[in-house]
Amino acid sequence: MSKITRRRFLAGSAAGGAALMLTPAQKALAAGSFEGFPEGMGVLVDLTRCVGCRTCEAACNEEQHLPEPSKPFDDFSVFDEIHHGQKRRTTDKAYTIVNRYDVKDTEEPLYRKIQCNHCNEPACLTSCFVNAYKKTPEGAVIYNSKVCVGCRNCMIACPFHIPAYSYHSVLNPVIKKCIFCYDTRLKEGKPPACVESCPQQVMTFGKRKDLMKIAHERIKKNPDTYVNHVYGEKEVGGTGWFYLSNAPFEEAGFDTDLPKKPIIDNVKDFLAIVPMVLTIWPALFTGFHLLATKGKSHGHGDDHSHDEQEGH
């Protein structure tokens, strides 16, 4: 084979390959520099108010047409349930869960409602290789189950352990999670079912930026009550639902080691090398090849007669 053919082949394959894979890489780099929609809605969750009545769980079940629960929603024995040493978590049958935590220094237990936090830069969204997730301008992180392949990477990525998977469906298993009641309520500007149902107004619904102000005012007005931190203001780039608490957040089961940067920032360094490898490698290794084989026979051992190894 002549050098010309080889070079031409190389140039062709390298250029083609680069074009094919550069585009996604560039898009990936552009993604993730997103700060959340300024007018996006959010929910301020004030844990000091929650009495653990589980009305929100019932409301979500009704609103989202979820299957029958295994125990009634006014059965408080669920707070003692332990699975693998863990308290309850969201499942494909329950998009929101209230757990009880015994905190130090107070007799009163603390209750915490768990659901999707509708992150500003959702890890689930950026990890999805079919782009099933979408952050709507209203602030919800919703999900298109029609394209879900079922790789479950979003479950790996979500720092809050939120998305669940309907493993038991044979033909159409998909991701299931809280969608901020987007279809039925948020789209029309209405608050989610769980928020509206709560007797204690643990959750306040509004524009995220307004609520953030209110959260800080509550801390300022009641410095003895609240821990001076709004969980979700900065965590993983900020979340649409954020929390006030009277006990240290780690005691209420929050992960306080989460980075302040969005999860995708972690991955950007790697994505940045992609175009580099794609452009530098072909030239580099072709160079190696030409150098290494310069002046030597290009014969391969497989030309039948060539059984002896070439001395090196």
């Binding site: 589980r54 009305t55 019932a58 409301a59 079940n61 009704e62 029958e68 629960p69 295994s70 125990k71 009634p72 929603f73 006014d74 059965d75 669920v78 349930e81 699975h83 309850r88 978590r89 499942t91 049958k93 329950a94 869960i97």
Partner: peptide, 19 residues
């Protein structure tokens, strides 16, 4: 009905609520 309690309570709690 809303709370799935009383006469609307789940018949059998065989299936676990979460795993």
């Amino acid at each position: 009905k809303f709370y799935h309690s009383g006469e609307f309570a789940p018949k059998e709690s065989a299936h676990s609520s979460g795993h």
